[in-house]
């Protein structure tokens, strides 16, 4: 079943269009990776899906409902959570308060239990629950951002370059977490410059170039594709 279907999406800032008709689809329980160079429009695509950027044309359907042009906070209420680029945690709140903010769209009594569950999954966060988020290391902040997004119990989790600027060991840990989430049935749309790691865990991958999807295939096939290898994996043809 399709969770998200983007069709012929055009979007940009003011008069400059960044996305020139992007189409893609994400099925339930899949990890879909989007790779592309700097300036290809990856972040703009995510921001358009989450409602921060208004599309000029095209549709974004979440389980059949068109969410294009809705306000960002409403889209969160409908079940799309985004881990923004650069670990957009709330610096002046504690780890615990950040997680509570993650559950902002929920009103059920099980929030506290879910927070406990996040502390079990990410023990480093549990140990620092009353510390201000700004005092955490980069890796811990990214874990917090992911844990916070999960607190909303989203139908679809969007991640914008979760490995950016992190040590290799931490990156490995984050990709392991994403794979665990998939095993638990979560649907994930992952935007990454770290193409190799992203495509390895992805069921399906898209390549975005200058605002257009230029390739679409399974993660493994894209890893083997000579064009992708040359441009995004740094391998040179012998």
């Amino acid at each position: 079943m399709t969770v998200l279907a983007v069709k012929d999406l055009h979007a940009g800032y003011g008069k400059s269009e960044v996305l020139h008709g992007v189409s893609l689809s994400i099925a339930r329980g899949e990890i879909v990776a989007l790779i592309g160079a700097n300036g290809a429009g990856k972040t703009t695509l995510l921001k358009t899906i989450s409602g921060l950027v208004r599309p000029t044309q095209g549709s974004i359907e979440l389980e059949g409902t068109n969410i294009a042009r809705r306000a960002a906070h409403k889209i969160v209420h409908m079940g799309v959570s985004q881990v923004a680029e650069g670990r957009a945690i709330l610096n002046r709140m504690t780890v615990l308060e950040n997680l509570r903010m993650g559950a902002f769209v929920r009103g059920d009594p099980e929030i506290d239990r879910d927070i406990q569950e996040k502390f079990e999954r990410f023990p480093a966060l549990g140990e620092r629950r009353d510390r201000l988020a700004i005092t955490l290391s980069g890796g811990e902040q990214q874990m917090l951002a992911i844990a916070r997004a999960l607190m909303a119990k989203p139908r679809l989790l969007l991640l914008d370059e979760p490995s950016l600027g992190l040590a290799p060991m931490v990156v490995t840990q984050i990709f392991r977490t994403l794979r665990d989430l998939k095993t638990e049935g979560k649907t994930i749309f992952l935007v990454e410059q770290n193409a190799r790691q992203a495509l390895r865990i992805a069921d399906k991958g898209y390549v975005l170039e200058r605002g257009k999807i230029v390739m679409e295939d399974t993660g493994d096939s894209l890893l083997d594709d000579p064009e992708v290898q040359r441009t995004y994996l740094g391998k040179h043809a012998a």
Binding site: S50, L52, H73, H77, A84, A88, L90, F104, V105
Partner: peptide, 12 residues
């Protein structure tokens, strides 16, 4: 702290 971050958490 940040309007975008707040909006992405469902804050109007």
């Amino acid at each position: 702290e940040n309007h975008e971050t707040a909006a992405l958490l469902g804050v109007n």
